[in-house]
Amino acid sequence: MDLRIFTEPQQGATYDTLLSVAKATEELGFDAFFRSDHYLRMGGGDGLPGPTDAWITLAGLARETSRIRLGTLMTAGTFRLPGVLAIQVAQVDQMSGGRVELGLGAGWFEEEHTAYGIPFPKEKFARLEEQLAIVTGLWSTDTGKTFDHDGTYYQLSGSPALPKPAQAKLPVLIGGHGAKRTPRLAGRYADEFNMPFASVEDSERQFGRVREAAESAGRAAGDLVYSNALVACVGKDDAEVARRAAVIGRDVAELKANGLAGSPAEVVDKIGRYAEIGSRRIYFQILDLDDLDQLELIAHEVGGQLS
């Protein structure tokens, strides 16, 4: 089971804070550091010091880490043109020595678009399908050849399809709860399917849909990695769990029902249930980015039992 750290910097974090978390992620033996791609805080509070851009952040971290993989859950398709995104991600992959993964979604948070003057089109999912075709098409075009795309929303003509990522195949992640279109896109384009904030039962149903979609697309269902993202609130005892839950403004019982919360033994048991349905990668959503002690506890007491 791969264990990864997933952050939500739009809630209020500087680059230096993210760097501290990423370095701890690497030093403690986690597999990867991922971040969301949002420009506006969700819920109460002032969101200070303000948002950080996902790919600028990852470019910095690419030069300041050496082992962990780096990526997004999920880059919003509404934020960037697909050709520009392909260039950005390929460059960051080069900067990292081939450690980047692209999670790409349609975009959904209308308020952040309004706040920063970003268009919020109605046909987001149809655009996402074209974006996936373009980004993966640009990267897979042989060097010296050109790439064209004549779509409903995007047109590319005679693109040199450069730069290329450092990896021969840069992993693409697709995720979500949709019962039809999401599995279809994942079955065609994804190297990993991520089910965010979902029960074991809902994850099992969605993994099944994705497996069927992959086979319908002419792929083996096992070609994809299946993963889950869940909020983390882990403590060595009940008092520590309660304290950490209070800091992030959540109820302990709710966290235990819907996330990875409680003692290390409780968390290991719950991860085991996800493993039984085929999940091979867990993203711990860390909401208190100043609490590096929790990362150490997860690494030693949870990761130690799963290794």
Rank of each mutant, 00 (worst) to 15 (best):
M95Y: 13
G144L: 10
A90Q: 04
A242N: 10
A32D: 13
G304Y: 03
G259P: 11
L162E: 14
A115C: 08
G45N: 10
G249M: 03
L260R: 07
A245V: 07
R4M: 14
G175M: 06
M195G: 08
T72P: 12
G97V: 00
A190D: 14
Q167T: 05
H113Y: 08
G187H: 02
G107Y: 10
P171Y: 02
G77D: 05
V247Y: 00
A86M: 10
K236H: 11
E129P: 01
A90P: 12
G235I: 07
K124Y: 09
M42I: 15
L292W: 06
V200G: 08
E240L: 11
K180E: 13
S263L: 14
A76Y: 03
E254I: 07
V135I: 15
R205Q: 14
D290M: 06
L104I: 14
G151Y: 03
V172F: 13
Q94M: 14
R244D: 11
A253C: 04
Y283V: 02
D142G: 12
A198W: 02
P160K: 04
A221F: 02
I277H: 01
Q285W: 08
S263D: 09
G303E: 06
A220N: 15
Q88P: 01
I68L: 12
T146M: 05
A232E: 11
M74G: 02
S96T: 07
R211G: 04
A22M: 09
G44Y: 01
A299Y: 01
S307H: 14
G105L: 06
V302C: 12
D142S: 13
T152W: 00
E276K: 15
D293G: 13
L81W: 06
S203N: 12
S199G: 12
Q131W: 03
L70A: 08
L260A: 13
L132F: 09
G176C: 01
A126L: 14
F79E: 09
S216C: 00
D202L: 04
A186C: 11
L295V: 11
A54D: 06
P163Q: 01
K236G: 12
D37M: 10
V200R: 04
Q155G: 00
A166P: 01
Q88A: 07
D53F: 08
G278S: 07
T182R: 01
T52Y: 00
S96M: 07
S263K: 09
L73A: 11
L48Y: 08
L170M: 14
Y116R: 07
L3H: 00
D202H: 05
G47I: 05
H177K: 10
E64T: 03
T7R: 03
Y15Q: 05
